[in-house]
């Protein structure tokens, strides 16, 4: 029996390191021993089937029980593709974010900014047959964090993705174009390759924008691709 084709390792410089000295929380949490490389088996190439019947979609974060959250309504849309440009059909996309004032609906967030009773900041959508996803939300605010003096996170939305293989599992952040905080952010700048970094910045898109309703941003996400040829059984 031939073995499944594995997923390719990331191109050099395109993923952040575990040890990023400018991001203080990595100091006591990064492994110090080299990772053990494991050849891909059914464990790595299979993934949970995230069925919308079990994991109900929630594509409009801008309202809670019919009441509008405060702030600038936006639409975020894009495609989930693999490295060969093929759509990742049915990919589950979870999102979470701060409200327009830069405050999370979270007991651990003590930033002195108002909570919005009509904004929770959690959503879940699925990619269609072409890999397209879309949700409506409120543009989040920047917020302070204690990493260094006068540290502020650039405006961002957290994304969590489930692809067709466990090795494709990804959590990342989407940033907004033109944010003056981006060049100062140790998390964004932990990615060594500047071109890879820029792929986390959404584009304003007039085609996603809806007249008299909301600005639109496009954010395409690329999950790891498979190696070209399955490794044949050596035995």
């Amino acid at each position: 029996m031939s073995d499944p084709a594995g997923y390719r390792l990331p191109a050099p410089g395109t993923q952040p390191p575990y040890d990023a000295p400018d991001y203080g929380s990595t100091r006591r949490r990064h492994p110090t021993r080299p990772l053990l490389r494991v050849p891909h088996t059914p464990t790595e190439v299979s993934a949970p089937r995230m069925d919308p019947a079990r994991y109900p979609p929630h594509a409009d974060l801008s309202k809670l029980e019919g009441r509008e959250g405060l702030g600038e309504r936006i639409i975020v849309a894009g495609r989930v593709l693999d490295e060969e440009g093929r759509p990742v059909r049915g990919a589950m996309v979870e999102v979470w974010q701060a409200n327009a004032a830069g405050r999370y609906h979270h007991p651990g967030d003590t930033h002195d900014a108002p909570l919005d009773p009509n904004f929770r900041g959690q959503g879940r959508v699925f990619a269609d047959a072409e890999g397209r996803y879309r949700f409506t939300t409120i543009r989040p605010g920047a917020y302070p964090w204690r990493n260094h003096h006068n540290a502020w996170r650039p405006v961002h939305i957290h994304f969590s993705l489930f692809g067709a293989g466990f090795a494709q599992r990804l959590i990342t952040q989407m940033y907004f174009p033109g944010d003056p905080l981006l060049p100062l952010d140790p998390i964004f700048n932990s990615i060594p390759d500047p071109a890879a970094r820029q792929r986390l910045v959404a584009r304003f898109d007039l085609d996603v924008t809806e007249p008299e309703w909301a600005l639109g941003y496009r954010f395409d996400i690329v999950l790891r691709g498979r190696e070209a040829t399955p490794m044949e059984d050596a035995a």
Binding site: Y23, S25, R124, H158, L170, T172, Q173, L200, I221
Partner: peptide
């Protein structure tokens, strides 16, 4: 095109 870079889940991921 290379895979999208990962970023930390941060301290507020409990929303999911």
């Amino acid at each position: 095109s290379a895979a999208t870079p990962s970023q930390t889940a941060g301290p507020y991921w409990h929303l999911i």
